[in-house]
Design a protein around this nucleic acid. Structure first.
Lengths: 247, 247
DNA sequence: AGATACGGTAGTGTCGACACCATGGCATTG
DNA sequence: CAATGCCATGGTGTCGACACTACCGTATCT
């Protein structure tokens, strides 16, 4: 179930539909999902030989898949060096959320302006489904629905550039968000934020919607920061090791 | 002279420094410059065989260079189809400028907040140089200085994510801006805008700076739209033809 | 004539090979 | 013992080849 969700979401966010061969898409999805789910740790080697063996192909499609993920900020590539899972610094993360906040505020404003009642109703049913998932404590399902909700909002607004940038930023924060949503209580805050945002949209209050989504983004960053601090403490005792992707 | 400028700016905006092999960088620069300067027309074929012959290499590095430009929105690639020079629709262009306006406003606010006096002084000398170029009517030199000015501003602000996105959007608008700055009188408006923006920064008025840069962006879009209408008229008489890249 | 089917051409995606270089271990030196 | 230099290993960048397919002109049919 979650596997299918992951597959579906990544295919959309990476715009793999007709842009790339299925082989490349498959590799990009596997690696991307691995990074987001934490199966592949930040800084870990992603050498193309191992990956090509794993998928029983040559290194060419692997390289292409890694380049796709590089542009989404999930993978770091330097010439002649082995590609690695991106390891954004705390500053990077703050920068990302800062930009994201600004663009999400813009998104909310445009949504109020452009979404018709039917589209708002669709969003409403989505949020209601998410409420159920949140109450059930189904973090994974909630997580992916959340991503799809924002993706749908960007679609409704209809600004392709904005959609692409927000999708890219979403990907960068996905691995972090996955962690942060797991924090106790975070899920409840998140669904509350979504409901309030949608209500503001229904009341056609663009200012309020912008403010709400900006606030929600700030809280999301805060949750991520706390989670990272906690991780850092744990890691302090058992210093980080570097593994290969092939393991 | 302008060739060197182009080379230098593209290398920065595409982040080619240590990210790619020199061979790939060279191809990406050539194609990218061609698109921006209008040597390669929107919609034109960019097949990898011709390009590899031109650079006396195999198709692998060509493919990689094209993928780089695809991520910057200068090239469109679909699986199994020949890559083409991007041909953004009017709607696409409006979308880009809309996002750009928002992010530039954000940039101006942060600039006021974070730039120290020394950095402002540096920007001041840049703008003064640009004033000279504008008065001399040296469109090309002004054009690239303008790009570098904004790139420097993003650097000063120090938000990597913001910088990358703005650089990417800058690239997308470069070919359009090149046209629009050529319009009579446009150059004078542009340099005035820059001077007013910088003054607002020096007076530490973030609100004003944001408003000014947003206004300047709107005017830039307007100029591009007028130019495109004009082009459309000309093209109406002599319908467009499609050429090969190898010509 | 317009539409559809067909076939040759030319370009794309993938592969395996090879030269070059980053990396990490080892020995040598101060 | 630390620091430097050297080598073997293994990974990257590029190449030329090959299968497959989009494209385009031609022929056929209605």
């Amino acid at each position: 179930m979650t596997d299918q969700d992951t597959h579906f979401v990544l295919e959309r966010l990476l715009r793999l539909r007709d842009r790339r061969e299925p082989l490349v898409a498959q590799i990009a999805e596997w690696v991307g999902a691995g990074i987001i789910e934490g199966r592949l740790e930040p800084g870990q080697d992603l050498n193309s030989v191992d990956l090509s063996r794993r998928f029983d192909t040559s290194r060419t499609p692997v390289r292409e898949a890694l380049m796709l993920l590089e542009q989404e900020g999930l993978v770091e590539m330097k010439a002649r060096r082995r590609p690695r899972v991106a390891a954004p610094s705390l500053q990077d993360i703050r920068d990302i959320y800062q930009v994201r906040r600004q663009l999400l505020a813009m998104l909310a404003g445009l949504l109020v302006e452009r979404a018709d009642d039917e589209q708002l109703a669709e969003l409403r049913t989505r949020v209601e489904r998410m409420r159920k998932l949140a109450d059930d404590g189904d973090v994974d399902a909630y997580f992916w629905s959340h991503v799809l909700l924002q993706e749908r909002m960007t679609e409704i607004v209809g600004n392709t550039t904005l959609k692409q940038i927000l999708d890219s930023l979403a990907l960068r924060t996905l691995m972090l968000r996955h962690l942060s949503l797991t924090r106790t209580g975070r899920l409840a805050y998140s669904i509350d934020d979504q409901e309030r945002l949608l209500q503001a949209c229904e009341e056609r209050d663009g200012e309020l919607a912008s403010a709400l989504i900006a606030g929600a983004t700030v809280r999301a960053l805060r949750a991520v920061e706390e989670q990272l601090e906690q991780d850092a403490e744990v890691r302090g005792r058992k210093p980080a090791r570097r593994r290969r992707a092939s393991s």
